[in-house]
Nucleic acid binder design. Structure first.
Lengths: 235, 235
DNA sequence: CGCGACTTTGAGCATATTCAATAAATGTGG
DNA sequence: CCACATTTATTGAATATGCTCAAAGTCGCG
């Protein structure tokens, strides 16, 4: 189902301002890019971009939608290790001469840009602004992973779920409806819980008037309630 | 107690071969380093190198011993998010213009090299081999974090502990005594468990003859036993 | 309208925690 | 070098948190 949409065109790319080429002035772009050729792919929910253990050939930038990076155990248990958004670079294990350490799947319908590894490395080495953007991406990725490790290792179920909701809705004004394109199962896989546990706490908070939701959106009605769950809860 | 041991000397540094300067030929080193001035510090168990939230001034390389990077919750719960070994670079959040996202503490007696951030950035930008080593360090850090997320999110207590032991002893030949300079409490903080749980399983495995240990060393007598705990356990 | 997938809810259970007490190891000062 | 104080580790019993299994309810889509 993964569908090739044709060659990418960095110059007209709608998410360039969020990509690793963000700081290249438009008129300098052709010279930076050179004969670097990307391609655009579209995929739908749960389609695989690459799998854990695969030998990398490309690195990717997400143009539209959301991606989940997952790891799994032999018996099928799954952990989502990161969610990739708009403009983010992923699938770069090859730059350290390693196979992919996780599987990448479409969380929603997505559009991705495939960047050939060798060309990308050439561009990075010759362009400080690209280099800097990539470095910052890796450091931010590490920071996010550290935060998630704190959640999974030290927080209890309701604390994890509440801080997840608050983080998800962080950049939006209070009381707005917000897309949450993760199923209950996916939320559980992200937070190291079971579907049932996720469902129970969400229902509880709906009854208490902290949140409202439809199948794929949420709204924080009383984020103070959730904040209390996050820190006061432990006492 | 943090004690300044004097200026660092990259040329004679015993761990240079493991550092980000590993690939610089010895005779090129002075020109690469220029007037970059490092300093060497020694610290003892549980002394703090920097704290979560601090504004970074330096980046560090570990010369001797082990370091733990931790995060904690308001009520005091602690999570170790990474253990730093020999030659590894840490404390680089400043390169992404961020404050430190975790606290760094000595796990054993340690010796660290303090690298001024701006000088390091200059060297990285001008030296492909330094740049590459740093990039690979970040990518490897991300991979390690992903693996740890799988452990914390998807594995049960005995599985976590068994895979921790196996990983710790991985590079050593079967049956060797191996330093394990983490207290039970620290193992618990790393694996998202309580001291009691850690102690219980270790005792159990000692009785079963899988492992032997002294206060700060272990020996895998029957690593097959542990391997069974890791994957067979779940069935 | 009916089927299939996802979600909610309930009841019982297992795992890991908490609290408490004992034991072992380590360090300190005399 | 020993006695004592302090920290660290072990073990036990009771509890709670989150999981498993099962059933009913919702939603979306053809």
């Amino acid at each position: 189902m993964a569908k090739l949409q044709g060659k990418g065109n960095c110059q007209t790319c709608p998410i360039r301002y969020r990509s690793i080429f963000a700081d290249i002035p438009e008129d300098k772009l052709p010279e930076v890019i050179g004969d670097f050729r990307t391609s655009i792919l579209t995929l739908t929910h749960n389609e695989v971009i690459y799998s854990e253990g695969d030998a990398p050939t490309h690195t990717y930038t997400l143009r539209k939608g959301l991606i989940k990076l997952t790891k799994s155990l032999p018996d099928g248990r799954i952990q989502i290790v990161r969610i990739i958004g708009h403009g983010e670079l992923f699938g770069f294990d090859g730059l350290a001469n390693e196979n992919h350490n996780h599987t990448a799947l479409a969380l929603t319908d997505i559009e991705i840009c495939k960047l050939p590894m060798s060309g990308l490395e050439r561009i990075r080495i010759n362009n400080p602004s690209v280099d800097k953007a990539m470095m910052q991406g890796w450091i931010q990725g590490l920071r996010a992973a550290e935060n998630m490790l704190l959640d999974l290792g030290a927080k209890k179920a309701p604390e994890r779920l509440a801080s997840f909701l608050l983080k998800w809705c962080k950049d939006t004004e209070q009381g707005q409806w917000i897309d949450l394109p993760l199923s209950r199962t996916e939320i559980a896989e992200l937070l190291g819980l079971t579907v049932e546990t996720v469902s129970r706490f969400l229902s509880d908070w709906k009854r208490k008037g902290y949140i409202e939701d439809t199948r794929s959106t949420v709204r924080l009605v009383d984020s103070d309630g959730l904040n209390q769950v996050v820190d006061g809860y432990s006492k």
